[in-house]
């Protein structure tokens, strides 16, 4: 397949920095210049700069930019409140909202020629997932102390040898399914777009896939956030076992 033209990589190459052409680079500098890294930085800078530009100073009567952010952030907060309750929302809103914005922008940016989605690399999605996974255990331990381990012991003591491996496996399955679903969907979108551009780009063949790509990008960001919320809520509950 043809190599996609990524403008940040081109810029870095003209600056003399090593940009790896394989999936994984050798050495620290080459790993830092991998496209998914550079586009992650690009997404972060984009979010910060756009936020700063549209939200210079808050006003009582919101302008265009502030209105947009108020609807977005307010909608997200209402959604979290409905699912997680006041306490968890106050504690975790910055983290989950950042994830939502980052994943949505990172997914959508890949639709523009010259850009790629950082989330189409398993490294990015696995990193996000590990953060969520570790955080939901921390929330569990903070909510119920060592009684949190009862979540993994099943309903009664006799069943512990049976239920413990099952619960552990299904808990680790979260790690795998959350990361691979996001990665798989976005990678499929990117690859399909690349192939269609190569085959019949002059006849607008990728256009229908781009429409689907917008849908997939937003839905996957939403699903990631919703599952994060569900995991946090479940970890925060007390285990209702008989012993």
């Amino acid at each position: 397949m043809e190599h996609p033209l990524l403008f940040i990589s081109v810029i870095l190459e003209t600056l003399g920095l090593p940009v790896p052409h394989g999936p994984v680079g050798h050495g620290l500098l080459e790993q830092l210049c991998e496209p998914y890294m550079t586009y992650t930085w690009f997404t972060m800078i984009f979010l910060v700069v756009v936020g700063k530009m549209t939200l210079g100073n808050l006003e009582m009567v919101p302008g265009k930019g502030q209105n947009f952010w108020e609807i977005l952030i307010g909608g997200m907060e209402n959604f979290f409140l409905e699912n997680m309750g006041r306490e968890l929302t106050d504690k975790l809103f910055p983290m989950i909202a950042t994830f939502a914005l980052y994943i949505a922008v990172a997914n959508l940016i890949g639709l523009i020629p010259g850009f790629m989605s950082p989330t189409s690399s398993i490294n990015t999605t696995l990193a996000l997932t590990i953060i969520v996974w570790v955080t939901h255990h921390i929330i569990g331990f903070r909510a119920s102390g060592f009684a949190y381990l009862k979540h993994f012991l099943g309903p009664m003591p006799i069943l512990i040898p049976l239920m413990l491996p099952i619960e552990l496996i299904s808990n680790f399955a979260r790690l795998l399914s959350l990361s691979i679903r996001l990665f798989g969907n976005i990678m499929a979108k990117e690859t399909l777009l690349g192939i269609l551009f190569m085959l019949a780009g002059a006849f607008f063949a990728p256009l229908p896939i781009m429409i689907l790509g917008v849908l997939v990008s937003l839905v996957q960001a939403m699903v990631f956030v919703l599952l994060t919320v569900v995991y946090f809520t479940q970890a925060n509950e007390h285990a209702h076992s008989a012993f």
Binding site: I169, A173, L226
Partner: peptide, 29 residues
């Protein structure tokens, strides 16, 4: 609109990951 889309998001979130979670559990085991 937000009620409808919220329901949609709920359905997607609740059932969209069934297949993947099932397969992931089997593979981890």
């Amino acid at each position: 609109m937000s009620k409808m889309s919220r329901e949609m998001i709920h359905l997607l979130g609740n059932y969209g990951h069934i297949g993947f979670t099932f397969v992931a559990a089997i593979f981890i085991g």
